[in-house]
Design a protein around this nucleic acid. Sequence first.
DNA 1: GAAAAAACGAGAGCGATGCTCTCGCTTTAA
DNA 2: TTAAAGCGAGAGCATCGCTCTCGTTTTTTC
Lengths: 219, 219
Amino acid sequence: MSEILSIGRQHLAVHGAAGLSLRAVARDLGVVSSAVYRYVKSRDELLTLLLVDGYNALGDAVDHAVNQVPADDFAAQFRALGGAVREWAVAEPARYGLLFGSPVPGYEAPSEQTTGPGTRVIVQLVRIIEGAHRAGALREVARAPVPDPRLAADFAAIREEMGLSVPDDVLARGVLVWAAVFGAVNFEVFGQYGRATFSDPAALFELHLAALAETAGLS
Amino acid sequence: MSEILSIGRQHLAVHGAAGLSLRAVARDLGVVSSAVYRYVKSRDELLTLLLVDGYNALGDAVDHAVNQVPADDFAAQFRALGGAVREWAVAEPARYGLLFGSPVPGYEAPSEQTTGPGTRVIVQLVRIIEGAHRAGALREVARAPVPDPRLAADFAAIREEMGLSVPDDVLARGVLVWAAVFGAVNFEVFGQYGRATFSDPAALFELHLAALAETAGLS
DNA sequence: GAAAAAACGAGAGCGATGCTCTCGCTTTAA
DNA sequence: TTAAAGCGAGAGCATCGCTCTCGTTTTTTC
């Protein structure tokens, strides 16, 4: 029943990830709790459903934002990607928290169902960086190649798997930028800036994106 | 009873933040559940206790690491800070998750008790950056001052409150670096790198720290 | 030292949770 | 028409947070 998923989305938004109760969903559905178990094996399965649902919603938002931007302006594409992630997260904090917050205790996401949708944002990001690199639009950014041989092997594996041609240092910067974008979003959405509140968080985030674009070599 | 806190710490580490059960703590204590309520007002209060406990443990680790490093080597101090955060988080993922993961649903941290310990890391970070700035050891990093007047006002307020002299652009970079450090730690601890696993995460993180030191102007 | 007061632990109990099982009713398929 | 599958209701189990009362023990006070 897609109605279960819909109500689950609402409950997720209102009561948060761990506050998701199958009994409450059943109540809202006007049905006794055991009936829901006909369609959903467990609370964890409902969580998984909502997880891939969220990943796809975020992926759609990011894809749409990136596509609004000229295909040859890679820096703008990156800013569009980051901005889309932030806006989606701010609009749906609980859903975002399910995707990128601390894991729900006792729940392990089944990778076979979640890795696909869960990697859409990073796939877009490497697409942008690789595109800029191939177009020669990537500024020289790092002085030295990565020194650690094990890391070099990891990067080689990633390059192989995703069919990339970017060198190690660019890849490393890309990974950092990736984590940094979500770090900044986390800080804003989860209120971890502490006492340091910002009256225009969107502007602060744009500043961050500009600096991160620089870090990635996207001038 | 400090024994409650000790057992709570163990349960937190094993079962995670939301898996913390006052009844289970009572069982481990060899006492009936209602007895625990003599000492702890509610599950949320126990959570708060563990929260400030965690903040202080992290703060101690960071302070200790930073103090191991020459007082005039600001870049090394920054790397020590970042490394200490990561190592503490990797060693105690559940505890770290309580501090920097998604908020526990239905639980709001009482700011009067948590802001103090909760700001120890960022206080150290601004201390490092401000120190480098005052010592003239901060590389010129940004081209333009922040354009947004509301952001400038925010930064001015922060500068005022913390008695700083760093300019807006450095402050902005500092905020980004702050969020980026925790973003990278989050990615590793919460396994959000996805399929991209790294055989030597510590080395990757060091690479990140080097790049972030550059971003902050700490050469 | 005796009496009053505070602290403490045990236990029962309330309303919730996730989840399982069985019992009927309805809809579909043979 | 009959057999089979799908479906919802309800009871039940163990767990949770939390409250209340009732004795016992310890501490304070006179």
